[in-house]
Write a protein that binds this DNA or RNA. Structure first.
Length: 489
DNA sequence: ATGTCC
């Protein structure tokens, strides 16, 4: 679908859909306007998609506070666009699984090292990637090499990252550098189906597929020396490891189960929606509360998942380089979620108000002095981790006070411009891997199909996305990374 | 993203 509605330029980085827009069927009742962050060059590809219509639709949520937002990496998603942000009143508002996404707490974790490019020959990069591929099960339907008991899974669902750390998978300090310290305390396992638990049991500690990856990266540019130093990035050539994954089949099942319940709730509470995929329920209803408690379980699952993977990444480096992870200073820089809804306090028209911020393909971007930011980083702001597509660069940004305009949110990645289906028709996996090899990037994909689907040209240019969020001030550039080796699910 | 429909 092509967007034919109004998109009014506010400034170089902001476009508005006014609340007077009536929708493609001329029956839309927008409760507020929507703002899309973009520059002029991105507008054609944004318009050539259903995402603007979905952004306009998202303003109809009961109890919406402020405007609806879409980040420069928006593209079509289930009900809400991927790259969308919507806040609803903490008491009078609704909660919507579509505004969170199927992969609950999909997110990114960055691990630093004190190694430099000269410490790792090309052969070592390949050895490390192959070792990581062996240690971290990857690909569609991949199963973990550890098998949790029922009690252990329940611990994961209620304790998040703390659970593996207490069982020897990680360092005690790790949890200090995770958003929410790697645990949402509202988790309630009785709100999770047996089927979800079944699917989750064998998948804690696996990478998954699609855009999920493990990358060995090098620092290629430092934009903000002071902030970089505080985040543990010292100079160009420093080696980092980035992990991008989520809650696997567990989160998917939680979302599916509760969507079914909330579709009924829409009728029960007499909620008008332009699209049934926006299914939601009042936050204070039985249905809304049960989704939130189950969503917290899935968020905790994802944090435990990334924690186990960090442990195996450290073990891989220890084995291949014959050194200890402590000696290599493999601490966690930070861990962010980009698919989640959380109760947060924000300044709205000069007043503090509690709102449920739905971030779907959007990253929290809290500025300096926020109590949620680790003490070590508090003078700088939250580290914001933005992964690029396979074979292109990734970014470490910092959150800003200006991001309060988006309820403390920014973009989450490059964003697709081409469907997986079209990408499969256009490219061959072998050629994609070869092309990256010729550029000095070693890729170990779980399948050649995924290599073709994830071809770099199927994505927007990450640089443009970053320039827009930097220019708009909702997150600021600190460091740029380039990949040396990739494990691709 | 996802045992791409139990």
């Amino acid at each position: 679908m092509t967007w034919n509605g109004p998109l009014i330029k506010i400034d170089n980085f902001r476009y508005e859909i006014p609340s007077s827009y009536k929708g493609k069927d001329n029956n839309l009742k927008m409760k507020t306007s929507a703002v899309i962050y973009a520059n002029e060059n991105m507008i054609p590809s944004i318009k050539n998609d259903d995402a603007p219509e979905q952004t306009a639709n998202s303003t109809t949520l009961p109890g919406i506070v402020g405007k609806a937002f879409a980040m420069p990496d928006i593209h079509w998603g289930y009900g809400f666009p991927i790259g969308g942000v919507v806040a609803t009143d903490g008491e009078e508002g609704v909660i919507s699984p579509g505004g969170v996404g199927f992969d609950i707490n999909c997110g990114v974790r960055l691990v630093r090292t004190n190694l430099h490019t000269e410490d790792l020959s090309k052969g070592k990069i390949q050895e490390l990637i192959d070792e990581m591929f062996r240690n971290v099960p990857s690909g569609l339907g991949s199963k973990a090499k550890i098998r949790l008991s029922k009690q252990e899974l329940n611990d994961v669902l209620t304790q998040g990252a703390r659970s593996p750390v207490e069982n020897g998978y990680g360092w005690n300090e790790d949890v200090d550098f995770l958003e929410e310290n790697g645990c949402l305390e509202d988790a309630d396992i009785s709100m999770v189906s047996e089927k979800a638990k079944q699917r989750g049991m064998s998948q804690v500690g696996s990478l998954g597929a699609g855009n999920h990856f493990l990358e060995i990266q090098k620092v290629t540019k430092i934009f903000d020396t002071e902030a970089a130093k505080v985040f543990g990035v010292k100079d160009e050539g420093q080696i980092m490891v980035m992990i991008h994954t989520g809650s696997r089949g567990f989160g998917h099942q939680v979302c599916t189960d509760h969507l079914r319940v909330l579709e009924q709730a829409v009728k029960k509470y007499n909620i008008w929606l332009p699209d049934r995929q926006l299914a939601c329920a009042p936050i204070n209803s039985k249905e809304g509360e049960s989704y939130l408690k189950a969503m917290a379980c899935a968020a905790n699952f994802a944090w435990a998942n990334r924690q186990l993977i960090v442990h195996w990444v450290r073990e891989s480096f220890e084995k291949v380089l014959n050194n200890s992870a402590e000696n290599m200073d493999m601490g966690i820089v930070y861990d962010v979620c980009h698919n989640i809804a959380k109760l947060e306090e924000h300044n709205i028209d000069g007043k503090k108000r509690k709102v449920y911020v739905h971030r779907k393909g959007a990253t929290r971007s809290f500025g300096p002095d926020s109590p949620e930011v680790p003490l070590k980083y508090r003078s700088i702001g939250q580290p914001v981790l933005i992964p690029g597509d396979m074979g292109t660069e990734s970014y470490l940004l910092r959150g800003t006070r200006e991001a309060e305009e988006t309820f403390g949110s920014t973009c989450h990645g490059a964003g697709r411009v081409m469907s997986r289906h079209r990408a499969l028709k256009k490219w061959r996996g072998e050629a994609v891997v070869e092309e990256l090899k010729s550029r000095g990037i070693y890729v170990h994909p779980a399948s050649l199909k995924v290599a073709a689907e994830e071809a770099p040209n199927a994505y927007k240019d990450i640089r443009t996305v970053i320039e827009v969020t930097h220019g708009a001030g909702i997150s600021k550039k600190v460091v740029r990374f380039a990949p040396l080796g990739v494990v691709k699910g």
